[in-house]
């Protein structure tokens, strides 16, 4: 009975589309905080602690249901990201723009991600968030594009946005971009 209703709802486009996004980045770049911000006011948790492994979070935006795999950024878990590449519709890559020291590590991780067979050939939208932009001495988005070599990404739509996950600055525009891209690539195509 329920199944029939589902089909009907799908057909008339009432039902929310479900998509998976992967949230990656080095530890302490603010992944969990960003995702926490996307959730409804009443579902947010007050204290964010380092994620061990991963955590699945759900939020909705513009009639699209997002399932975010919030991966742990600690180096011993980074090798486990690849287990979740398959079947994701978009990637949110978060960079601590104040952490100039580890920008090379970020580049290395990004390159590995882009070269991974599950990612390389796919047209996946990648949203870069230059987080902690409020801190003094943080890198600008333009700096980051050069540092990370984003201009060399050919086959994927990407966008970089300066954000402050604590206040939520920039997050709205960023997620709007991602939602539109996913809608274009994955939903309208069907």
């Amino acid at each position: 009975m329920m199944g029939l209703f589902d089909h009907l709802a799908n057909f008339v486009g009432l039902r929310k589309k479900q998509v998976n996004v992967l949230v990656v980045g080095l530890n302490n770049s603010g992944k969990s905080t960003v995702i926490n911000h996307f959730k409804n006011q009443n579902e947010r948790c007050t204290d964010i602690i380092p994620t061990i492994g991963f955590s699945v979070e759900k939020f909705a935006f513009k009639n699209i249901g997002f399932t975010a795999f919030d991966m742990s950024g600690q180096d011993r878990y980074r090798s486990l990201w690849e287990h979740y590449y398959k079947g994701c519709h978009g990637i949110i890559f978060i960079v601590d723009s104040n952490d100039k020291l580890r920008i090379v590590v970020v580049k290395e991780e990004l390159d590995m991600l882009l070269q991974h067979p599950e990612i390389a050939g796919q047209k996946l939208p990648i949203l870069f968030l230059a987080n902690k932009i409020d801190l003094p001495n943080s890198l600008t988005t333009i700096n980051l594009v050069t540092c990370l070599g984003l201009d060399k990404i050919q086959n994927k739509p990407w966008h970089i946005q300066a954000t402050n996950a604590i206040t939520g600055d920039g997050l709205q525009t960023a997620i709007e971009w991602l939602t539109d891209q996913i809608r274009d690539i994955h939903i309208n195509r069907r």
Binding site: T51, I52, G53, F54, S55
Partner: peptide, 12 residues
Amino acid sequence: EDVIIVTSSLTK
């Protein structure tokens, strides 16, 4: 291997 990956999910 790497079963600790579910730690955060389980603590949640």
